[in-house]
């Protein structure tokens, strides 16, 4: 209640986009139980991609949390973006982001989408990723360990759930 009064009075406003995001995330209570993952490769060296696959293998077995690797962004809840967002892939990354139904979580996996890594200030790459699409969690590392990727997905989902509960809190 108090939060809403404050934002209403002195803050510019809780911006149209924030309001929309809360509305959308409230729709979905079961996303934490079955996060379906789509893997976007934006010119990655394949290192992070192998680590993502490693997180699905029997040793880490992400499927026990309901995680499933899907083949199309239309089915996805979580986008795992790897690679330094090369010029060729920039439009495709944006397109894939738009094709994913809401609510969605974007996780940038590896050093490349986080800050450019060895391609820092290269004219042919467009890192960091959050200049182009909204990113929820950055997982640094070259490549990050599978535990780190799983932890990143969990953080992203927690952020989504906080959005859902924050909305309920302001209603009361």
């Amino acid at each position: 209640m108090s939060i809403r009064v404050q934002t209403g009075e002195n803050g510019p406003e809780p911006s149209e986009r924030e309001k929309l995001e809360r509305e959308i995330s409230k729709l979905c209570r079961y996303i934490g139980r079955s996060p379906w993952v789509f893997h976007v490769n934006s010119g990655s060296c394949n290192g992070c991609d192998i680590e993502i696959i490693a997180a699905l293998t029997p040793r880490y077995d992400a499927e026990r949390f309901g995680v499933k690797l899907v083949g199309t962004p239309r089915h996805a809840d979580v986008l795992l973006v790897t690679g330094p967002v090369t010029n060729q892939s920039l439009e495709r990354v944006k397109l894939v982001y738009e094709q994913t139904p809401d609510p969605k979580v974007v996780v940038a996996v590896g050093a490349c989408p986080t800050g450019g890594s060895v391609f820092f200030e290269s004219p042919f790459t467009n890192a960091p990723l959050d200049k182009h699409i909204p990113v929820d969690v950055f997982v640094p590392g070259c490549p990050p360990r599978p535990e780190a990727i799983l932890y990143g997905v969990v953080l992203g989902l927690q952020k989504l759930i906080e959005k859902i509960e924050g909305k309920e809190g302001s209603k009361e």
Binding site: I24, L27, C28, S34, E63, R64, Q99
Partner: peptide, 22 residues
Amino acid sequence: RMGPPLLQPFYDFLKMVSKESI
């Protein structure tokens, strides 16, 4: 592997019903 919980398809179904349909 451990595998997902037995009720996983129900969670999937409920999630899909509540998501945006493009």
